[in-house]
């Protein structure tokens, strides 16, 4: 199989590492060659973060470059807009509509662009926008945005639900399992 590329983007501290861990577990179980590239250290401190997940028969580069992502899963709307160049033709952008102001906006040195979702759609980007934060809160925790978005991504993957569930069970602590499963289901069915 030709290598598939999934980018997970967001703001440091939003929980994107758990999402990539979950995807890695899921895809390893399918027998693929996989590479998952993460960001640690300084850029994690509230900065723009990106994780690359690649799978197929043989994966070489650990990173995804411009024009190569089959999917971008964004935890925040501005971050979704930041990375659109990385989508390949026909690639899909799944975006949480949550707004988190970056420091230049907070201190008034820059503006948070208005109507980003509409602008992305107008630019011909295949955008699937959702209020993942509300669904996460409905599931029991605003921290479950990652599972809501993974639920949404699962709609586009030809992988049975029970395999996703097994990967979730292997990735989250038992205490939070039910809440995370609920968040996943809400994302998948939204």
């Amino acid at each position: 199989m030709e290598t598939k590329n999934v980018m997970i983007v967001g703001v440091g501290g939003q929980g994107s590492l758990l999402a990539s861990k979950l995807l890695g577990r899921l895809l390893l179980g399918k027998g693929y060659d996989i590479k998952v590239s993460e960001v640690h250290g300084m850029s994690q401190r509230g900065g723009s973060v990106v994780t690359y997940v690649r799978f197929g028969d043989k994966v070489y580069s650990p990173v995804i470059d411009k024009g190569q992502a089959d999917f971008i899963v964004s935890f925040e709307l501005l971050e979704a807009a930041r990375w659109t160049e990385f989508l390949k033709p026909g690639g899909k952008l799944i975006a949480n509509t949550q707004r988190i102001d970056p420091m230049p906006v907070i201190i008034g040195a820059a503006e948070y662009p208005e109507d980003l979702a509409k602008k992305m759609l107008d630019a011909g980007i295949d955008l699937d926008a959702m209020d993942a934060l509300s669904l996460a809160q409905e599931a029991g925790s605003s921290k479950a945005v990652n599972l809501v978005l993974m639920g949404r991504l699962s709609k586009y993957f030809d992988i049975p639900q029970e395999e996703w569930m097994a990967a979730i069970e292997a990735s989250v602590p038992p205490k939070f399992l039910e809440m995370n499963k609920k968040a996943f289901a809400l994302g998948a069915n939204a």
Binding site: V11, G47, A81, E85, L87, P102, Y112
Partner: peptide, 11 residues
Amino acid sequence: GTKLEENIPPR
């Protein structure tokens, strides 16, 4: 891919 014609503030 498509670059959005928009001023995206850095984070």
